[in-house]
């Protein structure tokens, strides 16, 4: 969320081929001459605007029994390769789409489409993260995904995406063994707010100085409940555990929706 430092701006956001709406028009008000000053207690969260959009997205995902996962990592951890390998294993089984967040280009969306899934590119321009408002607009462009999967590949950045709830069911942080094993300590917020840590590129472990146990220990100091899966999107090792994790969560999501609908049917029947 260090947008103050990295110069985030919403103005250049592009969802798919359409221009992102501007919601930050300034109001020019004439100077008020009366001197009736007063204090107003506000106590409002600065990110409450994003939180409102996130709530709306979450309701939409629940109604569609759609499992939305927010994938966060630094650039180069292998998010897109992981997604293409995941799509190969899941395509044809369930409705599936990917929202790709990048500052520029639609290269990642093209890679996803080549793997056989629907992909929508959001270009954030100078922005360093996706926000819930962009996801709401992206959902309007995507086909019906009822009962399926939505992967949101966030902008490669371990700082700002931590602060922005997109309405996802789970946040998944990806760390590759070519990075430092102490990254959880350096960027604690993103690990604190994630449910699953995927350690990618484990086929390279013999060639790098990455202490797997230390990394997991650091991550659990910040988030004792974080789940960990080790895998290599390239060789396929560990991919089965990840795909199982996704499928289990998707089944749970469907079950929750079925229970909610059954409860509603019972309520309505009682009114007959």
């Amino acid at each position: 969320m260090m947008c103050g430092v990295c110069g985030c701006g919403k103005d250049e956001v592009q969802v798919g081929s359409t221009n992102g709406h501007r919601h930050d028009e300034h109001q020019h008000k004439p100077h008020q001459t009366d001197d009736t000053r007063r204090l107003v207690q506000i106590e409002q969260d600065i990110l409450s605007e994003n939180a409102g959009y996130a709530v709306a997205n979450r309701e939409l995902f629940e109604q569609q029994a759609l499992l939305a996962l927010n994938l966060v990592s630094s650039p180069g951890s292998g998010k897109t390769s992981l997604l293409t390998a995941t799509i190969t294993r899941l395509s044809g089984q369930v409705p599936l789409a990917v929202i790709e967040g990048d500052q520029q280009t639609s290269r990642d969306a093209e890679r996803i489409r080549a793997a056989g899934a629907t992909a929508l590119q959001i270009n954030t321009g100078k922005g360093c993260h996706l926000d819930a408002h962009m996801i709401g607009h992206a959902m309007q462009q995507l086909p019906n995904l009822q009962g399926g999967l939505l992967f949101i590949e966030n902008v490669g950045n371990l700082v700002c995406p931590a602060g922005f709830d997109l309405g996802e069911a789970h946040r998944v942080v990806i760390l590759s063994v070519t990075e430092g094993d102490d990254k959880p300590l350096k960027y604690p917020d993103i690990f604190h707010h994630s449910d699953l840590l995927l350690i990618n590129k484990i086929d390279l472990l013999p060639y790098v100085e990455f202490d797997l146990n230390a990394c997991i220990d650091y991550a659990r100091r910040i988030n004792p409940d974080i789940e960990v899966i080790q895998l290599s999107a390239r060789t396929g090792e560990g991919m089965e555990s990840w795909v199982d994790w996704v499928n289990q969560r998707r089944q749970q999501r469907l079950q929750q929706r079925i229970s909610a609908l059954q409860a509603e049917a019972i309520r309505l029947e009682s009114l007959l």
Binding site: Q32, D34, D35, T36, R37, R38, L39, V40, Q41, I42, E43, Q44, D45, I46, L47
Partner: peptide, 11 residues
Amino acid sequence: DEMRVHELEVE
């Protein structure tokens, strides 16, 4: 970890 607008002086 809060980040909120606490109070305003307005006219």
